[in-house]
Design a protein around this nucleic acid. Structure first.
Lengths: 246, 246
DNA sequence: CGAAATCTTGAGTATAATCAAAAACGGTGG
DNA sequence: CCACCGTTTTTGATTATACTCAAGATTTCG
């Protein structure tokens, strides 16, 4: 068990919502955390696990996913730095989903015991963690709508908008450009379509002059049109700080 | 503001997870709650609202839904007695979804102030409420998978299984039969398909001898086969009491 | 440079949508 | 109790979005 007292993106997220007292910030910074480097495409936790700790994404891209008994994978959300994708395991014994890295990640494992202790001593931190899980739920709701009622082209545009706004909120964009190490096959699993079809809508988005997407880079050429194409409204992300002006 | 000290289904749900102390139970029972009767197909809260209270479904069927800018509705979950579908508004200022009744409902409105006060005094109740919102999120995740990666026939079977298990958990089933005042058009909005297509898969489920579904009644003729047809595993509902043996 | 992964293209197919209309059902008032 | 009206369910024919399968091109990385 190593300590990781550095300022981390989870604390940054909380601070974008309300001011932490020095005591609260210190308690968060001193949270014992086992920091591990994980390469791309590795499960961090698996459906059925009964974890005694939760994982904080410190850097890199990960995803939360489920698999049908027929073996089809559905990504239910992308996890970015500052996210704790399995924070729910603090109150739900069995994990009903898996978490996998997409790119190489640095992940901090925090014991539930430590989190519970922190929550007992700092009720506002309880609220902040609870709130984070509520935003996760809001994203799931939006994804049910996205997958259930939008066409593939619109779905793809929507997810790209969400990624840009969330990456901007953690300082990982430059204007309308960001690193995006997500393959078309992974987008397919997130959108509930095939990789072939993702390819076709990506080409259409390019042809329409909305995006540049190649390799690990996304460049949004026309943010307003992409938002419109994706029927994107960032309200569901509940960014209340300066980021709110999306 | 009327008081509703009667034993209510939300308390019952919490008690299926852990024993409440007399003090905790009493605090829950004395929670000030404005009880309102709402007829079918009425919005209880709307996307964009900034509520100062949350709504507890005391009886009847409701649903949480969102609408695309093109006007298509997606139901993201059904709300049953004991559910608090907008509990997230306790920590998220703006609602990113609407809640509508499906059948006539009795709904109890509870002020956020009262809920916050209760949470401050009883940390275990905080955990119980937090846990409820985490189960909601687990259901949303399963629905992303359902809508994204399963065929309509499987989707329908899955949702029927979920409804039966959840209704059983609140004592609203008799064997494999229950009241189910949900129209095929509403199922269509929940499954992300058209009402016409729902009709066709329902007929197939009937023809396969899995269900009887007509009027307001569901009768599951072959639970094991329906579970199999719907790839249903109740783990994601996180029922830990006696209900767990689904 | 070469192998593996990723992206792209094409042809044929399937699941589900759309449109339209008829039948059945449920509740209400005379 | 029955006729009536609105809602819900059902049916049919046509169309569209997206899938499947297969192979070729390109990129990435050791």
């Amino acid at each position: 068990m190593t300590f990781h007292p550095d300022y981390n993106p989870m604390i940054r997220k909380i601070e974008s919502i309300f001011m932490l007292t020095d005591e609260e910030r210190q308690a968060l910074q001193q949270l014992p955390m086992q920091v591990v480097s994980i390469k791309a495409d590795q499960d961090v936790v698996r459906e059925g696990d009964r974890p005694s700790r939760s994982c904080l994404i410190l850097s890199g891209f990960a995803c939360t996913y489920k698999v049908t008994s027929a073996g089809k994978r559905q990504i239910v959300s992308f996890n970015l730095p500052g996210d704790i994708p399995d924070l729910q395991s603090l109150h739900l014994k069995v994990l009903d989903n898996s978490v996998s890295t997409i790119s190489p990640c640095s992940v901090g494992f925090i014991a539930h015991e430590a989190l519970r202790d922190l929550c007992t001593r700092y009720p506002r931190i309880t609220s902040a963690f609870w709130r984070e899980t509520l935003i996760d739920a809001a994203i799931f709701r939006e994804w049910v709508l996205n997958v259930g009622r939008r066409e593939a082209y619109t779905r793809m545009a929507h997810v790209l908008c969400e990624l840009l706004v969330r990456l901007r909120a953690v300082g990982l964009t430059k204007d309308y450009t960001c690193d995006l190490p997500i393959t078309q096959a992974e987008f397919a699993d997130a959108l509930g379509v095939t990789n072939v079809h993702v390819n076709r809508v990506v080409q259409q988005l390019r042809a329409d002059g909305l995006i540049e997407l190649s390799g690990d880079r996304l460049n949004i050429l026309d943010w307003e049109k992409l938002k419109q194409a994706g029927e994107f409204d960032s309200t569901y992300l509940h960014l209340e700080g300066k980021q709110a002006a999306a």
